[in-house]
Design a protein around this nucleic acid. Structure first.
Lengths: 201, 201
DNA sequence: ACAATAAGAGTGAGCGTTCATTCAAATATA
DNA sequence: TATATTTGAATGAACGCTCACTCTTATTGT
């Protein structure tokens, strides 16, 4: 009647199929043929929605980055103790990885692709620790936490988050289930608050 | 008739060339031709010392894993405070990444290859947090540090180490120099000991 | 002379990408 | 309403290129 024809969620279908296949086989072994088959679509069709194979991965990273960024921003502007904010970030990530393991398999595995210029989406992702840095900075300014080296501590926290999610996914693959993340956010926040010292406070 | 095989350090030459090329281009784009050229050797020669391309990467991981494992074991059996041991581990890694950035570019980037069965060397590497776990367990038993979830805390610490090294390498590539690791081990050990609380102890 | 090792052009499989063709729905025509 | 024409999404066989790996020949060492 008007507009284009029916592309009823074809891109969506390709997107979901790509996540499934790339998560299972890795980006390198995830051929266009496999993704097309999983999406129930012809090879050529994929190229109606994506420029090339790299573009698919980039799109995944972009999309998922936006989600996280928005959540980070929301948390950031709350008026809470910095460690409460950090706990929200931890819980968000841990809930997401439980709900969407495939996505995180990709984010964590393919994040370190070499090609410099391509994959803008990946480099964006590397900016997430920046949000943590700002939360810490704000907390120091408001004298809620002690002063520290922001770059180092924020990188360490983000690294810890990633490592725990990786650990969770490995356990999931090896044993079919995982309790790694069950108390992880409490444990980490507690560690960040009082450290490992035995003295009571 | 001197030895069973090998002429003067051909395997060593290939090994070093492989590290250089893989670090620069990533494993996928590091072709055998390039490695052979960098080693000043013919393609066929490489196959006298390595079964296939994967075997080269595996060998790198194996070799480098052994180095770290031995160092971890040495530290582990010292009679020191657990956080002193941890600091030694941090310092060792940070010194190594400064001295041998190419090796760590590979260890950190290619560590998350998908192929399950292959790359035994990589899965070995994933065992390193275990040593941290044991150091912590020992420290708790001897009442040097408070009790905590070993799996979570050790994974977090190892993740923090990796993240800081990655950060260092990125800065190095972007700006040509990096001070990220200059005070990193002190900062992290301090964080592990007293956390971010403002209260004095 | 005889292994042992090096050499590197050749080979074939795999895969990303293209493009001529198809065909059902949308629109125009009568 | 019935029929002709246009449109462009979908298709998938074919293409071309990139490697990992092989194999025959050359070189080196004893």
């Amino acid at each position: 009647m008007m507009e284009k024809k029916e592309q009823v969620g074809k891109k969506e279908a390709v997107y979901k199929a790509a996540i499934e296949v790339i998560a299972r086989e890795g980006f390198h072994d995830a051929t266009i043929d496999k993704i097309a088959a999983a999406a129930g679509v012809a090879v050529g069709t994929i190229y109606n929605y994506f420029q090339n194979k790299d573009d698919i991965l980039n799109f995944i990273f972009q999309t998922e980055y936006e989600k996280r960024k928005n959540y980070y921003l929301e948390i950031q502007k709350k008026d809470r103790h910095p460690l409460v904010k950090l706990k929200l970030i931890l819980s968000m990530h841990f809930a997401e990885v439980k709900e969407n393991p495939d996505v995180y398999r990709i984010l964590l595995r393919e994040r370190c692709m070499p090609r410099i210029c391509h994959f803008e989406g990946i480099t964006r992702f590397e900016g997430l620790p920046r949000f943590i840095e700002e939360i810490l900075a704000d907390g120091i300014k408001k004298e809620k936490i002690r002063s520290c080296n922001l770059q180092i501590v924020s990188a360490a926290i983000f690294g810890a988050i990633e490592a725990l999610m990786s650990r969770h996914l490995v356990e999931l693959e090896e044993k079919g289930h995982s309790k790694v993340l069950d108390n992880a956010s409490e444990e980490i926040v507690n560690l960040l608050w009082c450290g490992l010292s035995r003295e009571k406070r």
